[in-house]
Design a protein around this nucleic acid. Structure first.
Length: 640
RNA sequence: GCCAAUGUAGCUCAGGGGUAGAGCACUUCCUUGGUAAGGAAGAGGUCAUGGGUUCAAUUCCCAUCAUUGGCUCCA
């Protein structure tokens, strides 16, 4: 007999070898119908797998994370089964569950699998699901596993099995389909009631671009049709927040094929938002002892030979600009740091001056791969809110804390509460990829770790994600469709001071090497604003809204009064406009709402006679009529 | 860069081997209207670009460019 401990602490005895499904049934049939996997001693397992030792058990439904994973993983197998029956001879890569669904990587050989094929596969899956086949687990020896897939002629599975240890290999079978898989899976295909194959993509085998590109099919599935409908509805909603769509609708920015791919053009309203952000940060940085500089957009090739960037990125970058002088070449600047190093070098520095903080809203140009371009989030010309701090090694932590504080302030101010702070350290297995001594790295890494701990933000740590010149802290934010983007970054750098031979005179009159911090709280205005648009759905906070108040005269008889109100608002530095079109008030309201203007003032006969305005808040509706000064008070309160 | 798909009016999209259509937006006129779309008329397109097939191509084929979804990359 074995003791089974339930999440509420209750313990019950069952015969050895009882399955989780049987345990669930012993509690209630209803529970047994809903559970799709079980967590046994913290490990998610199949429901029908016998439990042979006393254990803590928790039942997982679709709603649970582990349940979803098993459900989607099982759907991936179902898709593979459907694909094998429709396209015999295909070879399978891997097919895991992901955050919102699953995918399977398939080698279709000579067949070009297109989007038109998706529906056919979907239908086949539904048909197979109805067969209600069980997912059966079996343990196989390595020899047998290899023999099976040699017979099946699937090189990808063979490669995977080669890397596995004998005694640790399991197959799962449902219907006519057998797959190498460590599980866990749901009990049977019958509970997969709703399936949607969403998209198609190329994906290199094992994520290596030197390998063959397989066809990746993405999909999602649910135990109820209504859940799928809901999910698709959410995806539609998310698309409405896409910054590319809102950017065009709200006239914030544009692209032009003639100007070039990935080269954003900022329209007046977008420029306004960007300038507001720039002014805000400029002011903050002034308070924190930064000095603003401006450097040219191009620089002599020699600058990047010194910095080392030419060797690393020269070929894959915008190619040099030639001059009438032979052998003279200039590059569009891909980063601002080398320029700033030259500024530091311009005059000798005493330790008394440090830290020196040099800031620039520097526009940089990088030849991003064509397939990578994405709205404002990934472009070929962008402006960083860049700064480089040159300090003594023992000032590093304090400076880092200061930068961290600024970054947090920026994120808070912009309403980004959902971000991930990622500490990127070097790969301890692969130290030769990085420059600098162990001692220097340890110091830099602990400065980052200590600083984040001190300020108390949750972090995740990624080994091997550091820049080659030093560790960094990146702030990641998700877009409307759940894709993660890096915004702010703080990087410690021992490399450039070395390459540029930067030094300061210490108290003992000897020369020392400063440490450099690269930092950008926004990252770039382009990407930051793209995410700001998506997180606010285009409803900018009042201080950022290009037009704060739209004045709507009931008819053109009241244009003069509207003008008077508008002038008064402008005089107090509010951004107001008048909609003087010969349209009905309902139409003017609708247009102001659609353009996401935060406030509307309706003025007609009543308002003019009483000297009032009727206010309306975006998304909320009528907030009553009031004296203009009271309305301005509402604005002022919201701005503070 | 790679794989797949898309490209028709300012926007959203329909159409289809015989030189194009809707809604919204725009212009003009009528209407002067009270809290999310008043009415009428009009203008607007080398059907992304370049080749090819064809009596005829916006439609079929190829290439290029751009865009989209991913993969790889990201100083």
């Amino acid at each position: 007999m074995i003791d089974i401990t339930f999440p509420d602490g209750r313990v019950q005895t069952y015969p050895k070898g009882t399955s989780a499904l049987e345990i669930a049934k012993s509690i209630s049939e209803g529970l047994a119908r809903q559970v799709i996997a079980a967590e046994v001693n913290g490990e998610v397992r199949d429901l029908n797998r016998p439990i042979n030792e006393s254990a803590k058990i928790a039942f997982l439904k679709f709603e649970d994370k582990g349940g979803k994973k098993a459900f989607w993983h099982s759907t991936a197998h179902l898709m593979a089964e459907a694909l094998e029956s429709l396209y015999p001879g295909i070879k399978l890569g891997i097919g895991p569950p992901i955050e919102n669904g699953f995918y399977y990587d398939i080698d279709f050989g000579d067949y070009t699998f297109g989007e038109a094929d998706l529906e056919k596969v979907e239908n086949k899956m539904k048909e197979l699901a109805k067969q209600n086949n069980e997912y059966l687990r079996s343990e196989v020896s390595k020899d047998k596993a290899l023999a099976f897939f040699t017979e099946k002629n699937d090189p990808y599975k063979l490669e995977l099995i080669e890397a596995l240890e004998d005694g640790n290999i399991t197959f799962y079978t449902q219907g006519n389909f057998v797959d190498l898989c460590k599980g866990p899976h749901i009990p049977n295909t019958g509970i997969i009631k709703a399936v949607k194959l969403l998209s198609l993509a190329g994906a290199y085998w094992r994520g290596n671009e030197k390998n063959k590109m397989l066809t990746r099919i993405y999909g999602v599935s649910f135990p109820k049709q209504s859940l799928l409908d809901e999910h698709l509805q959410l995806l539609e909603e998310a698309k409405k927040r896409d910054h590319r769509r809102l950017g065009a609708e709200l006239q914030l920015f544009m692209f032009s094929e003639k100007v070039g791919a990935g080269l954003p053009i900022w329209l007046p309203k977008g420029t306004f938002v960007r300038n507001q952000l720039e002014n805000y940060l400029k002011e903050e940085q002034l308070k924190r002892g930064y000095q603003q500089v401006i450097t040219p957009h191009i620089a002599n090739k020699n600058l990047y030979i010194t910095s080392g960037h030419y060797a690393k990125y020269g070929e894959g970058s915008f190619q040099p600009i030639k001059t009438p002088n032979e052998n003279e070449e200039f590059f569009l600047k891909p980063m601002n740091c080398p320029h700033h190093c030259e500024i530091f070098k311009h005059v000798p520095h005493s330790y008394r001056e440090l830290p020196i903080r040099i800031a620039e809203f520097g526009t940089v140009y990088r030849y991003e791969q064509s397939g990578e371009l994405h709205g404002l989030s990934r472009v070929r010309s962008f402006t960083q809110d860049d700064a480089h701090i040159f300090c003594m090694p023992d000032q590093l932590k304090d400076e880092f804390l200061n930068v961290l504080d600024l970054t947090m302030q920026v994120l808070n101010r912009m309403g980004f509460s959902e971000f991930t702070a990622q500490i990127s350290l070097r790969d301890p297995e692969n130290k030769e990829k990085y420059i600098g001594s162990d001692e220097v790295w340890e110091k830099a890494e602990s400065a980052i770790i200590d600083a984040t701990r001190e300020i108390g933000i949750p972090t995740i740590t990624e080994l091997g994600e550091a820049a080659f010149y030093g560790p960094k802290l990146d702030f990641m934010v998700k877009d409307a469709l759940g894709r993660s983007w890096q915004l702010g970054t703080i990087q410690v750098d021992y490399n450039l001071p070395e390459r540029f031979d930067l030094e300061y005179v210490a108290s003992d009159n000897t020369k020392h090497r400063p440490v450099m911090i690269h930092r950008a709280p926004f990252g770039s205005f382009e990407r930051f604003i793209s995410l700001l648009i998506e997180s606010t759905a285009g409803n900018f906070p009042l201080w950022l809204a290009p037009t704060q108040v739209m004045i709507l005269p009931i008819s053109d008889k009241f244009n003069a009064y509207a003008q008077y109100i508008c002038d008064a608002l402008k005089k107090d530095d509010f951004r107001a406009e008048i909609d003087q079109r010969q349209e009905k008030i309902g139409k003017k309201i609708r247009d102001a709402e659609v353009s996401k203007t935060p406030y509307m003032l309706i003025v007609g006969e009543k308002e003019e006679l009483e000297g009032l305005v009727s206010a309306r808040k975006h998304g909320q509706g009528d907030i009553g009529s009031m004296a203009l000064k009271d309305f301005m008070l509402i604005l002022k309160n919201e701005l503070n």
